[in-house]
Design a protein around this nucleic acid. Structure first.
Lengths: 229, 229
DNA sequence: TCACTTGTTGTCCATTTGTTCAGGAGTCCG
DNA sequence: CGGACTCCTGAACAAATGGACAACAAGTGA
């Protein structure tokens, strides 16, 4: 997606000594360790940033020697890239399409709820993404320019059609998407700030429910819509 | 504020050989270089994160030898701290108080506009702050727990009083502050994403005006308020 | 001019870090 | 059991980095 690390998880095709081609399964050892490493990497990168993260730290967190980590991901950059491939794939699965026939209130509410749920379920991914963008998206620039642009454009067109049909207030659709994006993302990215300000030690499930409810309420009303009950 | 770097800019009081105390002006050499370094530091830290930034890079950007940078800020941590002291001071100056007597629509609109203006004027500061929080606020934890908590609490109380007086819809005041905070901050922090999605090379002033207008429109309406003209 | 402080800078060093590599252990299959 | 391949790992290394330091230059008030 963003780099050529895809080869890392694919099935290797090699030729044996007789020149015949044979296929080998990567085996589940590879699968398992790869995953372990990526999970550790997600935590470390989110906590310390790209440069601040050392392969040593990732290895320790994954309970493997550094050399072994480098056996799976030939270098740090690739690891970082592979992580984002994983994250983006995960996100893609969640966000369903919307269409002009949908009910605006329903669709927007669902979007907001999904996004908040995402912040709850994958806060590390959210933070990783945020840090990457803040630093100028050196790895994801291409993704932003292609996939994400198309994604936003598609949504914006549907929203615009709702507006044209007089089914919601005339607000800038792209700005609306940004608003939903940022306000929901905030619960993952600025977790510490929220916890400190609210004097809590940890999030609870109902905090997210409350947040989702608040956001749908205000944003829908802001779009001239009634919240679906 | 967050560390003891205050001493760095204060007037040094030393005793001379005879034991008499004398005061020396730091002179404007110190002032000027300090500022130059901090500006360079802001750019570097925002671009590469704490760990990713090297004193060498800061020095080069400031056009000084590394040793000279270390003469002004004895180590990297202190530099980082001094930077935030500057940033927080800058912010404090901008956000005026609100009171129960104010008009809710007027006050919220002003707040949103100020915050967007902040994103425009000091995008680096905003990003720096965001990265710090995302990484768990190792330097600003204390600030969040004290100053920021009080700040939010104070605002929330005023908003609540507006609600109690039936002057706006009953929305959670703290969540409302978070919403405004995140949605406005977004224009600075996720600049690259926005530019890519909108297929632009650079922000223009009117982009911010447009954003502020959109946000006040949606959020105020979401709070059951009319936008002040 | 003198005494003292402040400012400047090149050099040095211990440590960390990404990455390479060579060799060995484990696994699978005919 | 033997060969082919996958998986593992300790050791080594060049580059980079934060910081210490000493010697020197410039500024300042009396």
């Amino acid at each position: 997606m963003t780099n050529d690390s895809a080869a890392e998880s694919s099935v290797a095709v090699k030729k044996d000594s007789k020149g015949k081609s044979r296929t080998y399964r990567p085996g589940r050892i590879r699968e398992r360790n790869r995953e372990r490493i990526l999970i550790a990497a997600e935590e470390e990168f989110a906590l310390n940033g790209y440069k601040g993260t050392t392969i040593q730290n990732i290895a320790e967190r994954a309970g493997l020697p550094k050399s072994n980590v480098l056996y799976y991901f030939s270098n740090k950059k690739r690891m970082y890239g592979a992580m984002f491939d994983d994250i983006l794939a995960r996100w893609n699965k969640v966000f369903t399409e919307i269409s002009p026939e949908d009910d605006p209130a329903e669709a927007l509410a669902t979007f907001i709820r999904n996004k908040v749920e995402m912040s709850r379920k994958y806060p590390l991914a959210s933070r990783l993404f945020a840090m990457e963008i803040i630093q100028g998206a050196p790895f994801l620039l291409d993704h932003l320019r292609t996939n994400m642009r198309e994604w936003v454009r598609g949504r914006a067109e549907v929203i615009q059609s709702w507006i044209d049909d007089g089914r919601m207030a005339p607000v800038d659709p792209v700005q609306l998407i940004f608003l939903i994006w940022s306000s929901t993302q905030h619960y993952a990215d600025f977790q510490v700030q929220i916890l400190m300000v609210e004097n809590k030690a940890e999030y609870e499930k109902r905090d997210f429910d409350h947040a989702a409810e608040f956001l749908t309420g205000v944003i829908l009303r802001g779009c001239g819509l009634e919240s679906p009950k």
